[in-house]
Simulated assay, not measured.
Amino acid sequence: MSFEWLHLRLAAPLMAFGGVAIDHVGPTREFPSVSALTGLLANTLELRREESALHQALQDRLIFGALSIMPERRNVPLVVTDTQNAKLEKSDRGWTTWGAPERRAGATYDSPHRRRRDYLADHETRVVLRLAPGDGPTLDDVATALDRPARPLFIGRKPCLPSSPLLAGRARGATAYEALQSLGIGGRAIWPDEGDGPDNALRHNIADLRNWHSGLHGGSRVVMEGRIA
């Protein structure tokens, strides 16, 4: 059976596909995670952060493959690191995702707040995605929302504004690997383990699921990684 897939072009001067963060370090992966794409689509569909059940249902239905397009003569992604330092005084407050301002704790204000964030520079990723049967938006609903999103979109982090519309068209294929092949673009790619792909593809277990009810890491899944000819 052949399915219809949406074809997304994710390109920006800087973008981030966040990996597992430890302490103040925010890494980036080469490919988007399930949770990142869920958040991106939820933003286009005007879902509110507190609508955790709708986010979870969307993530549970999402099936996708992703392909990296490298500039000429580059074989690996170019990663740049932004080191951020901020001195927080006693009265300073920070914006949070849980709705209450964050305040500085402790008695001393001399040490700055430090964090490090990695970004993919001048990178482009193609994504093919579809939604498994279930309650919620249809693939056409998602396509319409991507064409006219309810809110401004960013790729991974708020400074990462896309350099072009995200919806690049549609694709067809029985699997994500076949849909990626139908784009006619070569590069390194990941796709769900559906029993197809080149013999030399690598099998990975990646932690990229989110529990939208708790807001915490929600598990891992198996993907294949290899080259699309």
Rank of each mutant, 00 (worst) to 15 (best):
M1G: 02
E4I: 01
E4N: 09
W5F: 04
W5A: 06
R9F: 01
A11Y: 00
M15D: 09
M15H: 13
A16C: 11
A16S: 12
A16I: 13
G19D: 02
V20L: 00
D23A: 08
V25A: 00
V25S: 02
G26S: 10
T28P: 08
T28Q: 09
E30L: 00
S33N: 04
S33P: 04
S33L: 03
L40F: 13
L40E: 07
N43E: 06
L45E: 10
L45C: 11
L47C: 05
L47A: 02
R48K: 15
R48A: 12
R48L: 15
R48Q: 14
R49L: 13
S52T: 15
L54D: 12
L54P: 05
Q56L: 08
L58R: 13
Q59K: 09
Q59W: 03
D60W: 04
R61N: 01
R61D: 01
L62F: 03
I63P: 02
A66I: 10
L67H: 10
I69N: 03
R74M: 13
R74T: 13
N75T: 15
V76G: 08
V76W: 10
L78Q: 11
V79I: 08
T83I: 13
Q84E: 07
N85K: 09
A86V: 14
A86S: 13
K87D: 15
K87M: 12
K87V: 15
E89Y: 02
K90D: 10
K90M: 07
D92Q: 01
D92Y: 04
R93S: 14
R93E: 15
G94S: 11
W98C: 12
W98V: 05
G99P: 00
P101Y: 08
P101R: 09
P101T: 02
R103A: 11
A107K: 05
T108W: 11
T108F: 07
T108R: 13
Y109D: 11
D110M: 08
S111P: 02
P112E: 09
A121I: 06
H123R: 12
E124T: 14
T125R: 05
R126L: 03
V127M: 09
V127T: 07
R130I: 03
A132N: 10
G134Q: 11
G134E: 14
G136A: 05
P137Q: 01
L139N: 04
D140A: 09
V142W: 07
L146V: 11
A150C: 03
A150Y: 06
R151C: 07
I155V: 07
R157W: 04
S164L: 03
A168N: 01
G169L: 08
G169Y: 05
A171K: 08
A171L: 02
R172N: 15
R172S: 14
G173S: 01
A176E: 05
Y177R: 09
A179N: 14
A179C: 10
L180K: 15
S182Q: 11
I185E: 06
G186R: 12
P192H: 04
D193W: 06
D193E: 03
E194L: 00
G195V: 00
G197N: 01
G197V: 02
P198N: 00
P198L: 00
A201P: 04
L202V: 11
L202F: 06
N205R: 12
R210C: 15
H213E: 10
S214Y: 00
L216P: 10
H217W: 08
R221W: 02
V222N: 08
V222H: 06
V223F: 08
M224Q: 12
G226W: 02
R227N: 00
R227T: 01
I228M: 07
